[in-house]
Design a protein around this nucleic acid. Sequence first.
DNA 1: TATACATTTGATCAGTTATTCAATTATTAT
DNA 2: ATAATAATTGAATAACTGATCAAATGTATA
Lengths: 118, 118
Amino acid sequence: MSADNAICSAIIIDQQKVDRVNKTLPPAEETKEMATLFKALADPTRLRIVQSLLLEELCVCDLSTIVKVSISAISHQLRLLRTMRIVKYRKQGKQVYYSLNDEHITQLIRTATEHVRE
Amino acid sequence: MSADNAICSAIIIDQQKVDRVNKTLPPAEETKEMATLFKALADPTRLRIVQSLLLEELCVCDLSTIVKVSISAISHQLRLLRTMRIVKYRKQGKQVYYSLNDEHITQLIRTATEHVRE
DNA sequence: TATACATTTGATCAGTTATTCAATTATTAT
DNA sequence: ATAATAATTGAATAACTGATCAAATGTATA
């Protein structure tokens, strides 16, 4: 029987290290927000949308064509990106044009691209 | 009845734009790989592990204490990060010490931190 | 005002994921 | 050898997620 359920049983291997890391880590709440940001880019459909909007402002219909998923699916994902303020939109006649709203997104995608291309 | 199921019905709003974007977008396969990378950082537990390893090389037991989840849960997540070559490990006695294996991860976390702090 | 088009929305369903639990492996010390 | 500790693993389960379908909003044009 091991101490699987416990949080590392009663034993800590290196207390000083643990203290040091605990002192330096950002608040857990911030980590959660960051995870949420990464999650926004963690789906191929959403990431493809963002990659497209990196190039051009696009309406929902054209996004659907480019990303090759249904308009409904695109719209659902756009809502999520909207809620997270990753994209913004403007209405023009019947169309709704989406574009990127955040410069950090560009940098994240650039770094991730480097990663997969190396 | 709308054209929900179709891929943007038969109509494209701006064919030139669509062509331009399609020509410039990276291969879909690359987008998938990038999404997988983001997914690795899209969970609070995993992100917390990575943030900790950014500061110090740590054994599983101490990671468990710091991240405040069971050793088993930590180990499962470490396996995923190992598979993705985001972390590496070395054995020393009964302990297994994990550390970061990828410089891009540092940059991704730095950018995401800026994002949530702004 | 009808009609068509572009988009949004809510419900549902299948597939995925993170944790827990129990058992196992590996290493060290007695 | 035996016991104890550190870590890994596989199965089971509950929660989450992304796509589809059907229906409902706008918005513009005939």
